[in-house]
Simulated assay, not measured.
Amino acid sequence: MRIIFNTLLVTIVISALNGCFFSTQDVQRWDIELQGTTSFALSRDARFALLYSKEHHLVLWDLTENQELASLGEQDPEANTVSRIRISDNGRFAVTATQMNFAVWDLAWTQAEGLWSISDGLIRDIDIASNGDQVLLGLSNGKAIYVNLVTGRRLEFLAHNEKVNSVALAPNGRFALSGGNDYKAYLWNTNTGQILHTFEHEQRVNRVALQRDGKYAFTSDGGNQAMIWDLASGEEISQLSSFSRQLIFSAARFSDDGQYLTTGTPSGRLMVWDALTGKQIERFDVEPLKDTRPPRAVVYDAAFDSQSRVVSATSAGIAQAWEVDY
């Protein structure tokens, strides 16, 4: 009997340490596009959502009022699939991208500001400044390109020598963070192209994020290196602590004050972390896409709302709000 009890106790402890106990119970959900989406973005406060599906194209939602605000339609005349969406830090503008072109939208007027094409590489990631005039692209040819759409100024950042997988642009458009297959992430000045900090990884960098006030940066690779950096000094603050062999993220966002980080994975896991210690605070499994085998959904975006909940947006076309025990 003692042997059985000890074995059971050890099993419980190991399971807890490996994070096998997690919640699947959301506190609110929005079933927006149950046929699935190819991209889905949230505003910083998780009030607005912009998503793309093949059936309904681009649709803007108000999650607080639980209603559709506008159908924006197709991005381009060829109805190419939108694979990337970002909403500006102030929630006023959005940028959407296929592999070959991108469009900027004024969400207040629910209309497009313009459509631009890229000819020298495929778009792998994109971001937009709060004024809606500045865009940052990460391309398959190793370039990170900053564009001022009003002045026409274009800066090609050429420090990466392989594909650029993830980019982040400061709300004021002055600083950029890019990560690529060359195992490096760079923080650089969009006025001069000067590298301010270089963050080294052991594998390909696949996700980067900036805290909105420019205090912190997040970079993660295809292994289990996921770090938070002090942008004033360039020094590491913490490394996300996990027993998983891989920590591959499809989404990452800091809370406004930078104290917390939320991440999402391609396998449907949503996590909340203490940014200063790297300790995992919460972990949830999102609703999978209907009739998929194995059942799962990609977490495209996540954000902290005004009620201190975390809201996830996934390929299942569903947004879910989760209570976090901080």
Rank of each mutant, 00 (worst) to 15 (best):
S242R: 05
I32A: 03
E162A: 09
L42R: 00
S233D: 05
V208T: 11
F254P: 04
L210M: 14
S83A: 09
I32K: 02
R2V: 09
I195Q: 11
T38L: 07
G264A: 06
D256F: 14
K184E: 13
V150T: 14
Q28M: 07
I118R: 06
N80E: 04
C20W: 10
N90G: 04
D301N: 10
R2N: 02
T314V: 04
V147F: 09
F304E: 00
R296S: 12
E156R: 11
N181Y: 08
V299H: 01
L72D: 00
L107E: 00
G223I: 06
R296W: 12
R92Q: 13
V286I: 15
G142C: 06
L187T: 00
Y216C: 08
Q194T: 14
V104P: 02
A103I: 01
T190D: 10
Q25I: 07
S166E: 03
N141T: 05
F218A: 03
L51K: 05
E236V: 08
L107C: 06
A303C: 11
A170T: 05
N165T: 04
R124Y: 10
F254M: 08
V298F: 10
G19E: 00
L158C: 13
T24V: 01
N191A: 15
V311L: 00
T265L: 03
S244H: 15
P77T: 02
T64G: 14
V205P: 09
F93G: 00
N148Q: 09
L187E: 05
D291G: 15
R153N: 12
G258H: 06
V27Q: 09
R283S: 14
M1P: 09
I281Y: 02
Q99G: 08
S53L: 04
T98K: 02
A321N: 03
G317T: 00
G264E: 01
S241T: 13
I32V: 06
G214T: 10
E113W: 13
S312E: 05
F22A: 07
K184V: 12
Q280L: 11
S71Y: 09
Q203C: 14
V59C: 03
A16F: 07
L63D: 02
L60R: 08
I123T: 03
G132I: 01
S308G: 09
A108E: 14
N206D: 14
A170G: 10
I128N: 01
L50F: 04
M100Y: 13
S312D: 02
D120N: 08
A170F: 03
W229K: 11
K163Y: 10
V205I: 07
K163I: 15
L107M: 07
E200Q: 15
E78L: 06
N6Y: 08
L169V: 05
D325M: 11
S220R: 06
G179N: 05
A103Y: 03
